[in-house]
Design a protein around this nucleic acid. Structure first.
Length: 538
DNA sequence: TTAGGGTTAG
């Protein structure tokens, strides 16, 4: 060019960076005879676009040291560099500098700030103070809630957005909303959202389809998840992972292994999450050898994959192999590893290994009441009531004893509340008739009507405290399930699929010859023929 | 010539 000026130089920097030619961009940037703030911005954003946020921040420092005044675009770029790094400390110091610099906070800067702050409340305050908001500001706030697990708030904000005349939710909005529905397990609302998308002609892109697969999977609607998976024009690792995890939770190990093959045929590389899904599926379906074979193919197995193998071996009864796996693994085991061993010890009633795993867990996470309960259950299954009581005492002393007050179940759109010893439910007589019937039939089939039996008479006060809170209210709730067979029971609060109700539902599924779906902690468990998708062999 | 938003696991 006969006349090169700062603009043409900057175009070169920006264009090269966009092509991923970062070294070349840097070379041009460094040989510029003069630079404007825009040139600096082009180079800074080049680093962010090429996933080098640290380089961006270093260059930003250099820029300040040379006395170049950042403008709004500069701030947006460096803030987003912190966002991709997840570096809240640097973000805080940037916000501080930003306040000192008296730069005008336009919609871009504010939106970037909502995205970075790691502090949902401040982000929301800023969002509420914004005079003008566009679709990206709304999406940033919605996904901010979602990224912090505040899915209800994300959905509420979407509802508010959808009532505004001048605001049209787009495909990004809908991806977040659909995923939030999945996390909450609210399939009915999810279906409404799907209709909303169709009515408003919002085209879904790959992320949107992936969210849909995730939602259907998490809500236990595997047929719909598979349908979306088949229908979508292009799949990526997210699509596979969402479906694999859904099938894994449903105990469909064979289908998952087929998907792994299909994935390879489509030349999509499985990642760490894929393998967790596959190993979980094998574990839940008792496919021990297949799981071990897959484990061998993982290039860089993580500690989580090892935990899956401990679970796989332990559930299947190869508990000594599970312990050996822990002894031989190169990394330091974390709570997930010992948790898997403890669970396996409970399933197979191995007191020694259970004690070993629990001791490690009490060190690693002393506040987690679940570990104490599991060990207590192991002692109880061995009728070691003194040890049970010792553990209760330890829990009281450490303040981890958490008595569950009540549970809430939802079905047919109505919330039912159950409390230990509660006699106030409007279908009480019917419930107890069903309970008695199931208990009799269980005994007739040779099952020991001991502590696992929901009808068990409680002998003394201590065990009453321990057992009633768990068994009885669950029993009452699940008796309702028997009567309402076919309905999906949604556990609204406090109730977990613990040992007692687990056995109960399995028995019911066998006696009634029905498939029962129960949503527990937002995950679906599928019970059929006396087996549960999570493959616990009681 | 430069700048802000989305999806997955146990």
């Amino acid at each position: 060019m006969p006349e090169r000026n700062v603009v043409s130089w900057t175009v070169m920097v920006s264009g090269l960076a966009k092509l991923g030619e970062l070294e070349e961009a840097k070379r041009v940037f460094e040989s510029m005879p003069e630079r404007s703030v825009v040139s600096w911005n082009a180079m800074l954003s080049g680093y962010v676009q090429n996933d080098l946020p640290e380089e961006c921040l270093l260059l930003f420092n250099e820029m300040l040291n040379l006395g170049v005044r950042p403008n709004e675009s500069t701030w947006v770029t460096v803030i987003s560099a912190c966002a991709s790094k997840g570096d809240f400390q640097v973000a805080r110091s940037l916000v501080h500098q930003l306040q000192k610099s008296r730069v005008n906070l336009n919609i871009y800067v504010k939106t970037a700030l909502i995205d970075i702050e790691g502090d949902v409340q401040s982000a929301n305050e800023l969002f509420n103070r914004m005079q003008t908001k566009d679709v990206i500001s709304w999406n940033t706030m919605i996904s901010g809630y979602a990224q912090h697990g505040q899915w209800t708030q994300a959905i509420e904000l979407f509802k508010e957005m959808s009532t505004l005349k001048d605001m049209k939710p787009d495909t990004v909005t809908m991806s977040s909303v659909i995923a939030a529905c999945g996390h909450l397990g609210i399939l009915e609302f999810g279906r409404w959202v799907v209709d909303y998308i169709a009515e408003n002609q919002i085209g879904l892109n790959l992320s949107g389809y992936n969210s849909l697969i995730f939602m259907y999977s998490r809500c236990g609607s595997l047929e719909e998840a598979k349908r979306v998976f088949e229908e979508m024009p292009k799949r990526d690792v997210f699509s596979y992972n969402s479906l694999i995890s859904g099938l894994a939770a449903n105990g469909d190990g064979l289908e998952v292994l087929k998907l792994l093959m299909k994935m390879k045929n489509e030349l999509i590389e499985p990642d760490a999450i894929t393998f967790i899904g596959i190993l979980t599926a094998c574990s839940h379906s008792g496919l021990v050898d297949e799981g071990l074979t897959v484990f061998e193919t993982i290039k860089c197995p993580t500690i989580d994959h090892c935990a899956c193998i401990v679970d796989l071996l332990g559930r299947a009864g190869r508990i000594d192999d599970a312990k050996r796996m822990i002894d031989e693994m190169p990394m330091r085991p974390h709570s997930g590893v010992y948790g898997a061993l403890l669970n396996a010890s409970r399933i197979h009633k191995c007191v020694d290994l259970g004690e070993f795993a629990a001791q490690e867990l009490f060190e690693l996470e002393p506040e987690n009441s679940g570990n104490y309960i599991l060990l207590s259950n192991i002692y109880a299954s061995d009728r070691r009531w003194e040890d049970v009581e010792k553990l209760r005492k330890m829990m009281r002393e450490r303040g981890v004893l958490k008595m569950v007050g009540a549970s809430w179940l939802e079905f047919h759109g109505k919330i039912h509340r159950f409390v230990a010893g509660d006699r106030s439910h409007c279908q009480l007589d019917e419930i107890y008739r069903v309970l008695e019937d199931v208990g009799n039939r269980m005994r007739a089939m040779g099952y020991i009507a001991d502590r696992n039996c929901v009808l068990r008479d409680v002998e003394d006060e201590e065990k009453e405290e321990m057992l009633r809170a768990h068994s009885e209210k669950l029993a009452v709730g699940f008796a309702l399930l028997v009567m309402e067979m076919g309905a999906v029971i949604r556990v609204v609060k406090n109730l977990r699929i613990c040992e007692d109700c687990h056995l109960f539902i399995k028995m019911v599924s066998k006696l009634e010859g029905r498939v029962i779906m129960v949503r527990d902690n937002n995950r679906f468990h599928c019970f059929k023929d006396g087996k549960c998708s999570c493959n616990d062999y009681w």
